[in-house]
Amino acid sequence: MKQVLSLNINGHDRDVMVSHEDLLVDVLRDQLGLIGTKKGCGHGSCGTCTVIIDGEAVLSCLTLALSSQGKKITTIEGIEKDGALHPLQQSFIERGAVQCGFCTPGMIMSAAALLSHNKSPSIEEIKIGLSGNLCRCTGYVKIVDAVEVAAAKMRQLDAAQKGA
Protein backbone atom coordinates (compact mmCIF):
# COMPACT_ATOMS: atom_id res chain seq x y z
CA MET A 1 0.00 0.00 0.00
CA LYS A 2 1.49 3.33 -1.05
CA GLN A 3 0.99 6.66 0.61
CA VAL A 4 2.29 10.20 0.21
CA LEU A 5 5.11 11.09 2.57
CA SER A 6 6.54 14.57 3.03
CA LEU A 7 10.22 14.52 3.92
CA ASN A 8 12.38 17.49 4.87
CA ILE A 9 15.63 16.83 3.06
CA ASN A 10 18.52 19.28 2.91
CA GLY A 11 16.21 22.12 3.90
CA HIS A 12 13.50 21.36 1.33
CA ASP A 13 10.15 19.58 1.75
CA ARG A 14 9.87 16.78 -0.79
CA ASP A 15 6.76 14.69 -1.37
CA VAL A 16 7.26 11.05 -2.29
CA MET A 17 5.02 7.99 -2.71
CA VAL A 18 6.23 5.24 -0.40
CA SER A 19 5.20 1.78 0.79
CA HIS A 20 5.11 1.08 4.51
CA GLU A 21 8.15 -1.14 4.23
CA ASP A 22 10.34 1.22 2.15
CA LEU A 23 13.72 2.06 3.62
CA LEU A 24 15.00 5.62 3.69
CA VAL A 25 18.14 4.74 1.73
CA ASP A 26 16.05 3.41 -1.18
CA VAL A 27 13.73 6.43 -1.20
CA LEU A 28 16.71 8.80 -1.19
CA ARG A 29 18.48 7.01 -4.04
CA ASP A 30 15.68 5.65 -6.22
CA GLN A 31 12.96 8.25 -5.83
CA LEU A 32 14.81 11.47 -5.06
CA GLY A 33 17.95 10.79 -7.09
CA LEU A 34 20.16 11.55 -4.08
CA ILE A 35 22.68 8.87 -4.97
CA GLY A 36 25.50 10.37 -2.89
CA THR A 37 24.20 8.22 -0.04
CA LYS A 38 25.51 4.73 -0.80
CA LYS A 39 24.09 1.32 -0.05
CA GLY A 40 26.78 -1.05 1.17
CA CYS A 41 26.26 -3.94 3.56
CA GLY A 42 22.54 -3.30 4.07
CA HIS A 43 22.59 -4.31 7.75
CA GLY A 44 24.18 -1.43 9.61
CA SER A 45 27.80 -2.50 9.70
CA CYS A 46 29.59 -0.45 7.02
CA GLY A 47 28.26 3.09 7.55
CA THR A 48 28.25 4.14 3.90
CA CYS A 49 24.49 4.90 4.05
CA THR A 50 25.02 7.38 6.95
CA VAL A 51 22.84 10.51 6.88
CA ILE A 52 22.17 13.08 9.58
CA ILE A 53 18.68 13.09 11.09
CA ASP A 54 17.90 15.79 13.67
CA GLY A 55 21.61 16.32 14.33
CA GLU A 56 22.61 12.65 14.76
CA ALA A 57 24.49 10.46 12.29
CA VAL A 58 22.21 7.47 11.61
CA LEU A 59 22.01 4.59 9.16
CA SER A 60 19.49 5.06 6.35
CA CYS A 61 19.57 1.32 5.54
CA LEU A 62 18.02 0.58 8.96
CA THR A 63 15.52 3.45 8.90
CA LEU A 64 12.00 3.22 7.53
CA ALA A 65 11.15 6.14 5.23
CA LEU A 66 7.89 6.66 7.16
CA SER A 67 9.77 6.95 10.47
CA SER A 68 11.61 9.97 9.05
CA GLN A 69 8.47 12.08 8.73
CA GLY A 70 8.69 15.41 10.54
CA LYS A 71 12.45 15.17 10.99
CA LYS A 72 15.28 17.14 9.39
CA ILE A 73 17.32 14.92 7.10
CA THR A 74 20.71 15.99 5.74
CA THR A 75 22.53 13.99 3.07
CA ILE A 76 25.97 14.49 1.53
CA GLU A 77 24.28 16.62 -1.17
CA GLY A 78 23.08 19.06 1.48
CA ILE A 79 26.24 20.08 3.30
CA GLU A 80 27.74 22.45 0.71
CA LYS A 81 26.71 26.08 1.04
CA ASP A 82 25.83 28.21 -2.00
CA GLY A 83 28.03 26.13 -4.27
CA ALA A 84 31.02 26.15 -1.92
CA LEU A 85 32.16 22.80 -0.59
CA HIS A 86 31.86 22.09 3.13
CA PRO A 87 35.27 22.34 4.87
CA LEU A 88 35.17 18.55 5.36
CA GLN A 89 34.64 17.95 1.63
CA GLN A 90 37.45 20.38 0.82
CA SER A 91 39.88 18.83 3.28
CA PHE A 92 39.09 15.28 2.08
CA ILE A 93 40.18 16.43 -1.41
CA GLU A 94 43.23 18.32 -0.18
CA ARG A 95 44.52 15.55 2.09
CA GLY A 96 43.94 12.77 -0.45
CA ALA A 97 41.43 11.07 1.87
CA VAL A 98 39.43 9.61 -1.04
CA GLN A 99 40.48 6.47 -2.85
CA CYS A 100 37.63 4.53 -4.45
CA GLY A 101 35.22 6.99 -2.84
CA PHE A 102 32.46 4.57 -1.86
CA CYS A 103 32.84 5.16 1.88
CA THR A 104 33.46 8.90 1.55
CA PRO A 105 29.88 10.27 1.81
CA GLY A 106 29.29 8.23 4.98
CA MET A 107 32.66 9.22 6.43
CA ILE A 108 31.89 12.90 5.82
CA MET A 109 28.41 12.66 7.35
CA SER A 110 29.76 10.92 10.48
CA ALA A 111 32.53 13.51 10.72
CA ALA A 112 30.02 16.36 10.29
CA ALA A 113 27.87 14.97 13.15
CA LEU A 114 30.97 14.55 15.31
CA LEU A 115 32.10 18.14 14.69
CA SER A 116 28.64 19.49 15.48
CA HIS A 117 28.91 17.89 18.96
CA ASN A 118 32.64 18.44 19.48
CA LYS A 119 34.44 21.29 17.71
CA SER A 120 37.94 20.23 18.83
CA PRO A 121 38.05 16.43 18.81
CA SER A 122 41.29 14.63 19.67
CA ILE A 123 42.63 12.08 17.19
CA GLU A 124 41.21 9.36 19.47
CA GLU A 125 37.79 11.04 19.44
CA ILE A 126 37.88 11.34 15.63
CA LYS A 127 38.67 7.62 15.39
CA ILE A 128 35.74 6.80 17.69
CA GLY A 129 33.49 9.18 15.74
CA LEU A 130 34.37 7.37 12.50
CA SER A 131 34.35 3.87 14.01
CA GLY A 132 31.02 3.05 12.36
CA ASN A 133 32.38 3.71 8.87
CA LEU A 134 34.49 1.16 7.04
CA CYS A 135 37.04 2.04 4.35
CA ARG A 136 38.23 -1.05 2.48
CA CYS A 137 40.98 0.87 0.64
CA THR A 138 42.54 1.23 4.15
CA GLY A 139 42.72 4.99 3.91
CA TYR A 140 42.05 5.74 7.57
CA VAL A 141 45.21 7.77 8.25
CA LYS A 142 44.41 10.39 5.63
CA ILE A 143 40.72 10.40 6.55
CA VAL A 144 41.47 11.11 10.22
CA ASP A 145 43.98 13.74 9.09
CA ALA A 146 41.35 15.38 6.83
CA VAL A 147 38.84 15.58 9.70
CA GLU A 148 41.44 17.17 11.96
CA VAL A 149 42.29 19.76 9.28
CA ALA A 150 38.60 20.51 8.63
CA ALA A 151 37.94 20.93 12.37
CA ALA A 152 40.74 23.51 12.58
CA LYS A 153 39.39 25.29 9.49
CA MET A 154 35.88 25.38 10.94
CA ARG A 155 37.14 26.78 14.26
CA GLN A 156 38.94 29.55 12.33
CA LEU A 157 35.78 30.32 10.34
CA ASP A 158 33.77 30.43 13.58
CA ALA A 159 36.29 32.81 15.17
CA ALA A 160 36.35 35.04 12.05
CA GLN A 161 32.54 35.19 12.04
CA LYS A 162 32.43 36.11 15.71
CA GLY A 163 35.10 38.80 15.14
CA ALA A 164 33.26 40.31 12.17
Binding site: G44, G47, T50, V58, L59, L62, L114, I128, S131, G132
Partner: peptide, 9 residues
Protein backbone atom coordinates in the same frame (compact mmCIF):
# COMPACT_ATOMS: atom_id res chain seq x y z
CA UNK B 1 27.91 -1.06 21.78
CA UNK B 2 28.17 -1.09 17.98
CA UNK B 3 29.12 2.24 16.45
CA UNK B 4 28.18 5.91 17.01
CA UNK B 5 25.33 5.47 14.49
CA UNK B 6 24.00 2.36 16.26
CA UNK B 7 24.14 4.18 19.64
CA UNK B 8 22.35 7.20 18.15
CA UNK B 9 19.54 4.94 16.92
Amino acid sequence: IGSPQIRAM
